[in-house]
Computed example of a mutant assay.
Amino acid sequence: MALQISTLFSYVRALPGTAAPLLRVRANYHGASVKFSHSVGPQSPQQAVNPATGPVLGIIKKFTTTAALGSSSQGNRFSSPQQRGGWFWLGKITQAAVLGVSSVALIVSFHTGSLAAMARKVNLNSAEGDWKETKDGLMSMTVKERRQYYRTSGFVPLEDVPVWTPSTGGSEVSHYPRNEKLTQKISVYSGDITKLEIDAIVNAANNTLLGGGGVDGAIHRAAGPVLKKECASLHGCETGEAKITCGYGLPAKYVIHTVGPIAHGGVGEKESKALRACYYNSLRIAADNAARSVAFPCISTGVYGYPPEKAVHEALATVREFLDEHHDKMDRVIFCVFLPTDKELYLQNLPLYFPAGEFSLSLSLSLSLPLSYSHSYTQYINCPCLY
């Protein structure tokens, strides 16, 4: 995410009886290093500082970048004029010795949003270095800039994930009102969750958050070893809770880690409540971080033993109720399934929580009924008293 241009003024406070010089500052970037050079320029009467009245404002100089960063084969060179050079304001100058004239310290705020990130070497194949710096760097990049750091090929952008289209009602009567705007926020996707280029994917993690089998292991492998370093700083996660990290080498910007209930002994109120909490807390933390597209795997239905035919209802009910309350905070919720049986469960039960509109129901039932009955039955299901 690009940083906004900072409009900080420059302040130079001279020592008593001494005229403060203007500083010309040039920033040269090479690798991860930053070098500053300064010189004293001639002063005009307008540039001189009156110690009694305050500082000189508005010292602006140009910075240039001389090398690109990273380890990709393209060299990660800055391609745009804004990346090659731009203007910045010197920050507030306070109390550090400069040329023996006054005490100043420079705080520099740059015009180019992702420059600070790209000025560091981002290596997602090694756990060495400061994960916070790596995270900050990736988070300040645009989607196009981050693509060179993906550790997976064949990413799938959100626009390539179709919206679910209901065709008929479910076998049971829905307890939720029809809301086509919410229905258009739902997708069922068969494929690899680690390839989705969206705001956030949800990881069915264990309590340690340090990786495991199944989808948990797949996400850690695709993200790279830096993900584990950030996860270690979170000190685990309780069942039903959710915590968020950077996506690192994943196409997804964030990974939301949640711990589902273990249900080998059967499903009771405790397990049901915990599974609902996984979905709700994941959506809540996504919304808190402005993640507007989220993909869920089938939480707890693998080695944790939660019956898929029961888990699907907890997932759909929680997502529907969250969207009812926070429809403005989410653009898409994707149910990412791997097994054909899981896909069938979602397609079969989605109409119970996201009922089809009048047109969809009318068309489907008309096509399935004999011609002599279709017209009268369509009129019946369109009766306002049924909604």
Rank of each mutant, 00 (worst) to 15 (best):
R332D: 06
S362I: 02
H235I: 01
V101P: 00
S44K: 12
V333G: 01
P340W: 02
T142P: 04
G41L: 04
R178F: 06
G217M: 01
S6P: 02
V143N: 09
P355I: 10
H264A: 12
F338Y: 15
R292A: 08
S190Q: 06
E197V: 02
G212W: 11
P384I: 03
D288T: 10
E128T: 13
L339T: 00
N281A: 11
H326E: 06
A315M: 07
S293V: 12
Q348E: 14
G302P: 04
I262M: 13
A32W: 01
F338A: 05
L69I: 05
S190N: 04
P261Y: 02
W89K: 14
A232R: 07
Y280S: 08
W89D: 15
T18K: 14
Q74F: 03
V156R: 02
S71G: 07
A356P: 15
S300K: 08
Q47A: 13
Y189G: 06
V40H: 04
I59H: 13
D324C: 02
F78G: 15
T258N: 12
R332N: 03
L361A: 05
P55N: 07
I5K: 14
L316R: 06
C385F: 06
V255A: 01
Q47F: 03
G154H: 11
E344L: 06
T64R: 06
L347I: 12
F335L: 07
V173K: 09
A105G: 13
A311Q: 09
Y189T: 06
I59A: 09
G191D: 09
R332H: 07
A27E: 10
S282T: 12
S114K: 02
F36H: 03
E309F: 07
I219L: 10
I198W: 03
E344Q: 14
G100D: 15
P261H: 04
R276T: 11
V267T: 09
W89Y: 15
